[in-house]
Amino acid sequence: MKAIGNWSKEILLVLMALVFLSPIYIIFVNSFKNRLELYENTLAFPEEFGLQYYSAAMERMDFFNAFINSMYVTVVSVIFIVVLSSMTAWMLARSGNWVSTVIFMTLIATMLIPFQTIMMPLMQLVTGITRTTGIPLYNTLSGLIFMNIGFHAALSVFLYHGFIKSIPISLEEAATIDGASKFGVFWRVVFPILTPITATVMILNVILIWNDFLLPSLTLIDKELRTIPLSVFYFFGEFTIEWNLAMAGLTLTIIPVVIFYVLAQKYIIKGIGEGAVK
């Protein structure tokens, strides 16, 4: 009796999760249907799995290009964020002087600033710099990466700082006595120890940057620079919505996220937990 009761609970649990995810199912099945089929029964399985709407959606969204742009911006931003914020956090944490405290406190305090509060002055500044000095900050992917580093510095330094405070200093001292430079000590001794928190910092930033819409929408003007959220936005804006095409487009954008989730599930859930709690 007990076994049966447990099995029904198991099934109920998974059923609930499936109902929860049903919008994704709906998007998926309807991405294969023609207009008539779509309006006949939205919830039914498609009669055939043709990919014609996918190729049409890919073309209209310029999906490959947007995917490459998103990949490029996310990967390069995250690498810079990891390298620069771990170095900064280490110095701030280990050189216990008042300058470090002031810098650290300032970083933390700015985490209170919502993006909407600085978006306009930032755009004024960035377009001004590009106009007067020719440094290509505005309307370039490198400019977006540069801004991403600035925006995600505080959280990343904060996470690294907390972790570094919790590891013993003796290893670093031993390496210093052995004559290693600061650079050598950091990269050969400290950075490898930081791996767990580096994973967290990477995961959090990948999610934030990959899904970011507002900042890219303000700084990227040229069509060929669009990231995935931007191309989805314009895709929905340019045409009266043809839902079967739109579904194929939405499914396309979800696929990379699902792959990322399947590959890094353990780290993602752990990283989100740590990021939230701190």
Binding site: T88, M91, I103, F146
Partner: peptide
Amino acid sequence: IFTVPLLLIFTLIVLVPF
């Protein structure tokens, strides 16, 4: 060397616009 690159970008992108 360790702190200035990040702090410079951060200042330009967050503090100055604020």
